[in-house]
């Protein structure tokens, strides 16, 4: 197995040549948001959140890191202005489609998104395709698939009837980023919650309070600090 050298956010790193860029970045501890990626499934590249910038002779270009094979000598920047602005817009678009997803609400808060500029819809699927791939690739069933084009795209069983091959294993629900309990913030359902962002927590001066042990509290990632993080 060969090793390639790449430069990530100014730091040189050596990674396995068979990896995708996303694998390499996560191995190196760089936080890259994703919604359609799952380690056990074929990368699909539709949520576009994992896009990063690569420097080339002729300028920079954006690549989908979950699909992009690492190459010797590439120079990668994961949190440039262009990338971060784009990611925020993408989360805004998805949240406007599925406002009740806790995953999306949390992501929005983490990215410091404070208002949604589009009319809210009330869909319950972001069409990430995780369920379709899991059903086919891991459960060896292939009971569900995509139909339709563009805005009419949806995930269904053939003829929309009870599938003959579905074993009711529930894997599709397990992997779905939207189907979980909706966000229980202050704001009514169907709106941007932002509770985790707005809440001024009773945070002690030092790390180690009970709050800090709660999973994904996120309260310390306030807007100002978020921007600091983004810049580095």
């Amino acid at each position: 197995m060969g090793i390639v050298t790449l430069k990530v956010n100014g730091i040189e790193a050596r990674v396995d040549e068979s990896w995708t860029l996303l694998e390499a970045l996560r191995f190196l501890g760089v936080e890259i948001p994703t919604l359609c990626h799952h380690d056990g499934l074929t990368p699909y590249g539709v949520c576009r959140l994992c896009m990063v910038e690569i420097e080339e002779k002729s300028g920079t270009k954006l690549v989908t890191s979950c699909l992009y094979p690492v190459k010797e000598g590439i120079v990668v920047k994961t949190h440039t202005d262009r990338v971060v602005k784009g990611r925020r817009m993408l989360v805004e678009l998805m949240l406007a489609r599925c406002p009740n997803s806790k995953t999306l609400q949390d992501l929005a808060s983490k990215m410091g998104i404070e208002n949604i500029r589009f009319k809210m819809k009330n869909e319950d699927c972001i069409l990430c395709g995780l369920c379709v791939r899991l059903c086919k690739e891991q459960m060896m069933s292939g009971a569900i698939g995509f139909i339709g084009r563009g805005e009419k795209r949806e995930v269904v069983t053939p003829f929309r009837t009870k599938s003959e091959i579905c074993r009711n294993c529930g894997a599709c629900m397990y992997v779905c980023p939207v189907v979980e309990l909706p966000c229980r913030g202050y704001n009514p359902q169907g709106e941007l919650c932002n509770s985790c962002l707005r809440v001024v927590p009773e945070c002690a001066d030092e790390y180690g309070q009970i709050m800090c042990y709660l999973e994904s509290c996120g309260s310390c990632v306030k807007k100002g600090e978020m921007n600091e993080l983004v810049k580095t």
Partner: peptide
């Protein structure tokens, strides 16, 4: 019609999910 599609899937050995996706695309 539905039964025709089922027959085509069977004969060509294509998963029904794929065929249904194709005719709806």
């Amino acid at each position: 019609p539905q039964d025709v599609l089922k027959r085509v899937a069977e004969k060509l050995e294509i998963p029904m999910t794929q065929l249904f996706g194709v005719v709806n695309f």
